[in-house]
Structures are given as C-alpha cells and as structure tokens.
C-alpha cells in the first residue's frame, strides 16, 4: 500500500540515498573491542602498525557496543559466553554486521569433538554471520580480506564501492 503512494521519482531518490548510506557504511566499519581467544591477538595485529585497519576507516575500535557497527567474533565461543555475545549483539544498533574469524568461530574448529561439553560449535548458531574468515588463526591479511569482502557485501558488489581505489596484489619482500 505504502509502496504505491511513493512516486517513481521519489523511489529513485530513496534508492540513491540508500546507496550513499551503504557506501558510507561500508567504508566506515567500526569494530567492537572484543576478543575471545587466539584470533583476538591476530585481530589486534591487524589493527596494529604492520597491517593498519585504519586505512579502510575500520581502525576505530569502539569499546561500547552502542557505537560499533561490526562484531568480530574472534575465538572459541564457550557455552558460558554465548548468552553474553547475544546480548552484546542485541545492544548494537542496526545496521550491524558480524564476522566469524577463525575456525573456532566458524564451526568450533579443532575443539569440536565427541564429548565436548563447553563450546558452541559455530557462531552461526547464535548470530547471523555475514563473512567467514577461516584459518587457525587467520593471518591479518585474511582478516583484511574479510573486511573487504564485507564491504563488497554492504555495497552489493565491489564495483559499486566507488570510494575504493586500489588494485590487488603487488608482491613486496619483507
């Protein structure tokens, strides 16, 4: 019903607004300061000088869920922690995204075995995950690639992310 009342021109404008918003959201993903286990260290490393997430505008780690856009589940989710993660997720304002970083966060990883009593095997059982970054732990490059993948997801395609200006891969010795 409401759909019909919007004039076609207005709808185009709304779409443009939405697109601009998405562009901005994609280029300003503020993650929450939140680590669970090993992968959190690689998350910190990704934010540190060598890899510098801040280049993409994603280096503003906010300690409060109210101000963050992105939850990086970095590490094993124990059953004791799971309800808290859900609460934190609910405290984040929409639109929000979730990256499952590391094998433990994706599927329980090596800790899923017969008789396991303590962990939740997979973030997707409790949260809607947008991007999965496998590895044990993934390298910071892997996490950055996850960020770029999430940006593509938000702008609905890499080409539409007009603010991104780089080409991939020039090998540099260390």
């Amino acid at each position: 019903m409401a759909e019909k009342e919007i004039a076609p021109g207005a709808r185009v404008q709304l779409a443009v607004v939405e697109e601009v918003l998405n562009l901005c959201r994609a280029n300003s993903l503020w993650p929450m300061t939140f680590g669970l286990a090993c992968c959190a260290i690689e998350m910190m490393a990704a934010g540190a000088s060598r890899f510098d997430l801040d280049r993409f505008g994603a280096g503003v780690f906010r300690p409060s869920p109210r101000q963050s856009d992105l939850m990086i589940v970095a590490g094993t989710i124990s059953k004791k922690m799971a309800p808290i993660i859900v609460t934190l997720w609910e405290q984040m304002p929409a639109p929000k995204w979730c990256i499952a970083m590391g094998n433990c966060a994706i599927s329980g990883g090596p800790f899923e075995y017969d008789g396991q009593y303590a962990i939740v095997p997979g973030t997707d059982l409790i949260l809607p995950v947008d991007v999965y970054v496998p590895g044990c732990p993934p390298r910071p490059e892997g996490l950055i690639q996850g960020f770029l993948a999430l940006e593509d997801l938000i702008t609905k395609g890499e080409k539409r992310n007009v603010l991104r200006r780089f080409k991939r891969k020039i090998v540099k010795g260390r």
């Binding site: 901005c24 540190a48 510098d52 280049r55 993409f56 505008g57 603010l163």
Partner: peptide, 24 residues
C-alpha cells in the same frame, strides 16, 4: 602507520563518511 587512506585522497573523506554513517 598510515591512517585513513583509502577513502578519498589521503583519506580526507573518511570523517565525512563516518559522519554520514553515524546519521544512518
């Protein structure tokens, strides 16, 4: 580090993008 870089030349658009995002 380098800091904001990829959004606009020298990342100059970064804070504008952040602002618009926060509005949304």
């Amino acid at each position: 580090r380098i800091g904001p870089k990829e959004v606009g030349p020298f990342g100059i658009l970064q804070s504008i993008v952040d602002g618009i995002k926060l509005v949304g």
